[in-house]
């Protein structure tokens, strides 16, 4: 394939205390894929995303976004953190949280104005949350909070989207709404990376997949590598029954 490379990770090793939670990860993610990262709890999925985004410093290795370090490409990247990583009791409204997505393009000191507000309202509309715009965020349900975060990422108008478990605790209709938006993003040529736990839906939702468990097990097109062998290597249990029914 002559596809452009969106994200390239080389020899990435990350440790919190002593033992690395990610070992020597090499990863190439082509532009325009909708990719799932799968792996058991504690496999280092969130850590991988955080390391790519420079939220934590790796002890070795490098990350390139379109050939440049992340620091230079910040504006091309949007990120939806795993739930529970923010202070839900913070005094702010849904609209305000979505507006935060525009802060990156503003840079330091400059304040958001009408243009940013309009973009935020449009994003809220897209995730069907417009009627909740003035709601304090702690008074939203888990699925609604997830939609707000998706809207916040959309408003960043990025080329690459990272989402850490966007389907965690959301109902079927929200899940479908979210995946449809993600598929739309892919259609628009964006690259979307999603930490995903529901193995059943991987073939239906994604076209690219990375198996991760401290080390990278495999990465590539779903139709080529999403098989029992890789699942077993990743999860350590035989997945035949679970996936192939």
């Amino acid at each position: 394939m002559t596809q452009k490379i969106a994200i390239q990770v080389d020899d990435l090793t990350v440790a919190y205390n002593y033992k690395p939670v990610l070992w020597d990860i090499d990863l190439v993610i082509p532009q325009g894929v909708l990719m799932a990262i799968v792996g058991p709890n504690g496999a280092g999925k969130s850590t991988l995303i955080k390391a790519i985004l420079g939220i934590i410093d790796p002890i070795a290795g490098s990350v390139a976004i379109y050939g440049e370090p992340y620091k230079k490409q910040r504006k091309l990247v949007a990120y939806v953190p795993q739930k529970g990583s923010v202070d839900w009791d913070f005094p702010t409204t849904a609209l305000d949280v979505v507006m935060m997505g525009t802060y990156g393009s503003l840079g330091w000191i400059k304040r958001p104005g009408q243009k940013q507000k309009k973009a935020a309202l449009e994003a809220l509309e897209k995730v069907d949350m417009l009627s909740f715009k003035s709601r304090q965020i702690s008074q939203l349900s888990g699925g609604q909070q997830q939609r707000i975060f998706l809207a916040r990422a959309l408003v960043q108008n990025a080329s690459i989207y990272f989402m850490d478990e966007p389907f965690q605790g959301v109902d079927a209709s929200t899940e479908i709404a979210i995946i449809n938006i993600l598929k739309e993003l892919r259609k628009a040529g964006k690259t979307v990376v999603v930490v995903h736990h529901d193995l059943q839906t991987v073939p239906e939702y994604f076209d690219w997949v990375t198996f991760l468990n401290v080390k990278k097990i495999a990465t590539g097109p779903v139709k080529d590598i999403f098989n029992d062998d890789n699942l077993t290597k990743t999860y350590g249990i035989n997945y035949k029954v679970a996936v192939n029914k």
């Binding site: 955080k50 985004l53 420079g54 939220i55 910040r74 990247v77 990120y79 953190p81 990583s85 923010v86 202070d87 913070f90 702010t92 949280v97 935060m100 802060y103 990156g104 916040r152």
Partner: peptide, 9 residues
């Protein structure tokens, strides 16, 4: 509000 977003931005 969100340390992760802040540093990502």
């Amino acid at each position: 509000f969100d340390v992760g977003l802040s540093s990502a931005l």
